[in-house]
Simulated scan of single mutants.
Amino acid sequence: MIKPIVHSEEPVLLVGGAIGDNSQLSDLLEDATTVVAADSGADWLRALGRLPDVLIGDLDSVSDATRHAMPQDRVHHIAEQDSTDFDKAVRSIRAPLIIGIGFLGGQVDHLMAALTVLARYPHRAIVLVGPDDVVLHLPPMFEVALTEGTRVSLYPMRPVTGRSTGLTWPIDGLSFSPETRVGTSNKALGPVSLTMDDAGMLLILPVQERARVQQALLRADGLWPVL
């Protein structure tokens, strides 16, 4: 059992090193009570005039200037190289919701690694925010109030089935897997309800739906068991 570094009763903002839109990060900072940086995410924060409350990672990317600007008791070096800095941060945070930014832009391999971490922790409530999209791992039941025509994409990280209401193309009776069937660019008819039979499905929505997604995930009736 890994001892958590960060405990919060409120959502935690986690900032990664795939630097994106400064205004998007600034907006997220306005509502954040606890801000954690994964390695070089601290440099992005410092460039906006904010140091993270906690820095976590293998620290091979963060600048010396940023690292030395922080009180050393807020710097947590996790040296192992078998996991990404995003993974190290997620398993070190205990909070009702993690909002991650700086993980969906930049290199494609880093983006794919972040999605793999979402699939690895289906028992955690995590929303990744990118320039154009938000991504989360679907809990067993998820309801979100969308407007008609909103793009709704489902991407399976392993074989999974489920049921839906409120989609132009319902998913009932379909078998999804990365090798055979994915559910990109479906559309909402209005409010959407998704019920999954097992863990493994990612939901991708336009970034404009971020607030609704966060509220819906916090309202969700239970997450998946710990793998």
Rank of each mutant, 00 (worst) to 15 (best):
His137Asn: 13
Leu13Val: 13
Ser61Val: 04
Ala119Ser: 14
Ala216His: 03
Val90Glu: 11
Pro170Lys: 12
Ala216Cys: 11
Val134Ile: 06
Leu55Glu: 01
Leu167Ile: 14
Glu30His: 14
Val6Ser: 15
Leu28Gln: 08
Thr165Gly: 03
Leu174Ser: 09
Ala188His: 06
Ser40Gly: 05
Val15Leu: 11
Ala188Gln: 12
Leu154Ile: 03
Leu14Thr: 08
Gln107Asn: 13
Arg50Trp: 12
Leu218Trp: 15
His123Tyr: 14
Pro170Gly: 11
Arg50His: 15
Ser153Pro: 00
Arg219Val: 05
Met157Leu: 08
Gly57Trp: 07
Arg151Gly: 12
Ser83Leu: 14
Val36Ile: 10
Glu209Met: 11
Gln72Glu: 01
Leu51Asp: 15
Leu154Ala: 01
Glu209Asn: 04
Pro159Gly: 09
Thr165Leu: 12
Gln107Gly: 12
Gly17Cys: 13
Val62Gln: 03
Arg151Ser: 07
Pro71Ser: 13
Val15Ile: 00
Thr184His: 07
His7Trp: 09
Pro191Val: 09
Ser23Val: 13
Gln214Lys: 14
Thr180His: 01
Val127Ser: 02
Asp132Gln: 10
Val160Phe: 06
Ile56Met: 12
His123Asn: 13
Thr116Glu: 09
Arg158Ile: 01
Ser83Tyr: 11
Asp58Val: 02
Gln214Cys: 02
Gln214Met: 05
Gly100Gln: 04
Asp39Pro: 05
Gly162Phe: 04
Val135Lys: 00
Phe86Asn: 00
Pro178Ile: 00
Trp224Leu: 11
